[in-house]
């Protein structure tokens, strides 16, 4: 498939969420992740890209990197927006908490789908979410 090891996608519309999913599905498959992990990763992408689209007043970005380590491969995804920011990250991570009239399961769900998750946010400046999923090289 000739996928690059790094890249980025712009998130400005609902259609861009579809593009992000498609790109990461190809990238993760090419990197050697199994079908179950690919679905987990793509679901996390869907959640986080939707968060950027819904909460960021301006537009945002998704960046991805393939991480190589002895015996394992990883995919790092960084979502950045210049939105209003998250007031209380711990609260945002709680299942059922929402400011957007949705399920409120997204962020807590992503944490369970991925291996690493780090959120940094400043009110009025924006939010960055970094997640990583590791897989064994077959």
């Amino acid at each position: 498939m000739g996928c690059e090891n790094t890249g980025e996608c712009h998130i400005g519309s609902e259609g861009d969420i579809v593009t992000c999913r498609k790109v990461i599905r190809n990238v993760a498959t090419a990197a050697g992740f199994g079908m179950t992990d690919v679905t987990r990763i793509v679901t996390a992408v869907s959640e986080l890209a939707r968060n950027v689209y819904v909460h960021a007043e301006s537009t945002g970005m998704m960046r991805w990197n393939i991480l190589q380590q002895p015996g394992k491969v990883g995919i790092e995804l960084i979502f950045e927006d210049q939105g209003k920011g998250i007031a209380d990250i711990d609260q945002a991570m709680e299942a059922g908490f929402t400011t957007a009239n949705s399920m409120g399961m997204g962020l807590s769900g992503v944490k369970r789908l991925m291996d690493e998750m780090l959120i940094s946010s400043e009110l009025g400046v924006g939010t960055t979410v970094r997640v990583v999923k590791w897989g064994r090289i077959k």
Binding site: M35, T36, T39, R40, T43, E47, A95, M103, M105, G106, S108, G109, R112, L113
Partner: peptide, 13 residues
């Protein structure tokens, strides 16, 4: 599908 079932559980739905 099994993968969907797994992700739904992870998401806590």
């Amino acid at each position: 599908r099994p993968v969907i079932a797994q992700t739904l559980v992870h998401l806590g739905i």
